[in-house]
Simulated assay, not measured.
Amino acid sequence: MSAMFEELDYAPTPIGAVSLRRRHILALKTDVFEILLGEEHLMSSLFTASEVALAELGLAALSGEGLDVLVGGLGLGYTAQAALAHDAVTRLTVVDLLEPVIRWHKEGLVPMKTELADDPRCRLLQGDFFALATSNDGFEANRPGHQYDAILIDIDHTPERLLHGQSEGFYTSDGLSDLKRFVKPGGIVGLWSDEAPEEAITALLGEAFEEAWAEPVVFANPLQDGREMTQAVYLGRKA
């Protein structure tokens, strides 16, 4: 059996110290990896259903081959991994504010080891997603104004419960319209939420995009005897 607890890495960042931890849960006979910002939990390998669903639902709304996808927020990598599982995806860019998180993937400290860093279709890019979304040139300096088939965002807890001040002003009609400039015609924007679908968020997305809807993601919580949890993926389509 592995050690009960191990801090794999700890590093300062501009928004606070970030740490990668591994805990062994005896009741489940499994190791759980967690990312914390200070004492705030950002992600756990025990709960990944909605992160995976963000990619699967977003890409299911598209057709065709040669898809170029942008993911905002790397974390433990489950949204990016799910996107790369689609053969239609030929290019994936993942933007994360925190350099240590990107380094963990390159060093293989996360559960999927160096899978993302080793995939030739995938580029891990350090940057402020929200600042880039409002910039003139967009997300990649060598491709100014580049548009994506899908932009999938898993950064804040919900569009109403923000992780940090960087995203202030993004979840507005103007902020989402800024992002829309970097979406191809017919393309998709997806938002992850830690909570069940809310009509107000769907309506907000509909102010910027011609089509908007929410998908509930229901899964069993193994820490609560299988009690169901509901989170959400919000999707908007550009005409």
Rank of each mutant, 00 (worst) to 15 (best):
V95K: 02
R91D: 14
L125G: 07
Y78I: 00
L98E: 11
K113T: 15
S63W: 09
D68T: 08
S45E: 03
L54M: 14
Q126F: 06
A61K: 12
L42R: 11
M112P: 02
W104V: 02
T114P: 09
L42K: 07
K113C: 14
E99M: 15
D68L: 03
V101W: 01
C122W: 00
E51M: 07
E56R: 13
H41K: 15
S63R: 13
L42Y: 09
L116P: 01
L46M: 12
V32N: 04
D68G: 05
V52C: 08
A53I: 07
T90K: 12
T90V: 11
L70Q: 00
F33A: 09
G108Y: 05
L125V: 15
L98H: 09
L54Y: 12
W104P: 03
I102T: 02
E40L: 10
G72C: 07
S44I: 12
D118R: 15
G64H: 13
T90G: 13
F47E: 10
V52N: 02
A53F: 03
V95Q: 01
D128A: 01
H105M: 10
L125R: 15
V89F: 06
A53R: 06
V110W: 02
L36W: 12
W104L: 04
L46I: 10
G64K: 14
L37G: 05
A85R: 14
A131M: 12
L57D: 04
Q81K: 14
A131V: 05
H86F: 07
A55S: 11
K113Y: 10
L37I: 10
V110A: 02
A131K: 13
H41T: 14
A53E: 08
E99H: 13
L46C: 11
A117K: 05
L36M: 13
E51W: 04
T114M: 04
M43S: 13
A80Q: 06
E39G: 11
T93L: 12
E115C: 11
F129M: 10
L42F: 11
A53W: 05
G38V: 13
L76S: 07
G127N: 08
V69P: 00
